[in-house]
Design a protein around this nucleic acid. Structure first.
Length: 465
RNA sequence: GGCCCUAUCGUCUAGUGGCCUAGGACGCAUGGUUCUCAUCCAUGUAACCGGGGUUCGAAUCCCCGUGGGGCCGCCA
């Protein structure tokens, strides 16, 4: 049968009150994967009803990071631009008597709250001023519901709440200032959202939103509550766990493909042993049935491993161009592009993140200074022997043409000599002469990157010691 | 405290009653390749929270504990 079913529509509703959080990015990703998989639409909704805390730069960051990750959306809304709609629905509720102005002061509510907590009762506010017809104070939804509220979560199954524990739900500070639970319900309905996929921390909001839906005669969307992203201590991932902003990972040179891949694997699995997936492949494989119920610890080691895998799959040219911004940051934007390309080839297996290039950068950009004792392999060689080997190597290198100064040829020409004198005796001093370091890429690799002229210069420097 | 969610190696997870002496990956350890570092390869390390049921048979189903988490705003 031809499906008459409505098109699937999901939404991602961040509030622009901070840099885009990785947990939110994952929620966005799952919404993206679910809707794209079903050929549906994704709505990006900026929830900026809190004027005090919302900032344009955070909204810009949300857009920038989502774009960086390769996530796209079909419609964009700003809640602040929809006030008339919200106010109209608020009026409707007020006029029908389903909502009322609650005149209790903050102090009174606080006293009530403390009393309830003291009595070990559920904190809630059942207003005794409902029918006073007041025109001031916050607007609450009249909640007389007695029968259990049930919804069937796509990930967790049936979840039931006792509505009597909710009290009269606050839905607005006033006609012009609607609150979260109310706005979400109105916007989801207005935007014809079919599936609400959000963090598990929203489960307690769901019954409140259902009550509002009922008052407004809206059909409830399907719900899927995702497991939370956790810190190492297994509590909800937050700023105190360190880098939680997508931009932080962006800034140190994680590849967007790696971040997406890693985030997808947090709380979801393909049902096979495969671990590396590009975004399009995730779209194809994704299903809510494979989503985990328990929280997942955000483990940067695994992210780094995935990132290395993606970086190694890049060609030297591709890696070089991704490295460019980081070289600029390190003040080395003047490096010739062919040198950068060769460096990319050599460093590819040594980087976890693009920014790590800083660690070895000096090897390629400046002649080394080092302790003369370091030139001796395992401390067994004397200066004379070291110089003999370096001089011999220099002779061999001198006859190689500029254009043939590549890994394969360098190795072919020098290895026989090195092997004849026990490799370490030749290669260690050579490598130290070139790098000045105890640990570094190999001598052939360094020579390949810095070229013939610089190579000879560095050997000469060592010879003069 | 109340309500709700949840529970397999340190971490991410496979497992939907027998194929499980529980598989993969990250990490870690050891060995190999190797002038050092890294890569790569091999091997190893390590888990079904506890107790009751149900069943011929439970990691898998049920119950009760316990642990962990989330939420209890005139924030979202």
């Amino acid at each position: 049968m031809e499906g008459k079913s409505q098109k699937i529509r999901t939404r991602f509703p961040p509030s622009p009150t901070g840099w885009l959080h990785v947990g939110n990015a994952r929620t966005a990703l799952f919404n993206y994967l679910f809707s794209r998989h079903a050929n549906g639409a994704l709505v990006l909704r900026i929830e900026d009803t809190d004027k005090e805390r919302s900032r344009k730069e955070f909204e810009d960051d949300i857009i920038e990071q989502l774009s960086w990750l390769g996530l796209t959306w079909d419609e964009l809304y700003r809640q602040s631009e929809r006030l008339e709609i919200h106010t109209a629905y608020l009026r409707r509720l007020l006029e029908s008597g389903k909502a009322f102005y609650c005149a209790h002061t903050k102090e009174e509510l606080e006293t009530e709250y403390k009393r309830q907590v003291g009595e070990k009762a559920t904190p809630r506010h059942v207003c005794d001023q409902r029918d006073k017809g007041g025109k001031e104070g916050i607007i609450r939804l009249r909640n007389d519901a007695k029968t259990p509220l049930l919804f069937s979560d796509l990930i967790r199954g049936d979840i039931t709440f006792n509505p009597e524990l909710l009290g009269d739900i606050s839905i607005a500070r006033g006609l012009e200032s609607p609150l979260y639970n109310f706005v979400v319900v109105v916007d989801d309905a207005e935007m014809r959202i079919t599936h609400v996929i959000r963090g598990e921390d929203h489960i307690p909001n769901t019954p409140k939103q259902m009550l509002i839906q009922q008052a407004l005669d809206f059909v409830a969307p399907a719900y899927a509550h995702l497991p939370l992203l956790l810190g190492a201590d297994r509590s909800k991932l937050s700023k105190r766990h360190g880098g939680t902003a997508v931009r932080d990972y962006h800034a140190v040179g994680y590849l967007p493909e790696a971040v997406v891949n890693f985030l997808a694997l947090l709380g979801w699995n393909p049902g096979t042993d495969r671990e590396l997936f590009m975004l399009e492949e995730l779209v194809k494989e994704f299903s809510l049935e494979k989503v985990q119920k328990a929280g997942a610890v955000f483990n940067e080691e695994k992210l780094a491993w995935i990132n290395r895998a993606y970086m190694r799959s890049l060609s030297p040219e591709q890696l070089a161009s991704k490295l460019a911004p980081f070289l600029e940051q390190a003040g080395k934007s003047g490096m010739p592009s062919d040198v950068v390309k060769r460096m990319a080839r050599v460093e590819a297996s040594r980087l976890s993140r693009l920014k790590d290039i800083e660690q070895n950068l000096a090897i390629y950009t400046e002649a080394p200074a080092y302790n003369i004792n370091l030139l001796s392999w395992k401390g067994t060689q004397d200066i004379a022997e070291i110089k003999t080997h370096l001089a011999e190597v220099r002779k061999l290198l001198r006859d190689i043409m500029e254009g043939e100064f590549v890994l394969e040829i360098l190795e072919k020409i020098l290895m026989p000599y090195a092997a004849a004198h026990s490799k370490g005796n030749v290669l260690w001093p050579l490598r130290v002469a070139l790098s000045g370091r105890e640990a570094s890429p190999g001598p052939f690799e360094i020579m390949y990157v810095i070229g013939k002229e610089e190579t000879l210069k560095r050997i000469d420097n060592a010879l003069q010691i």
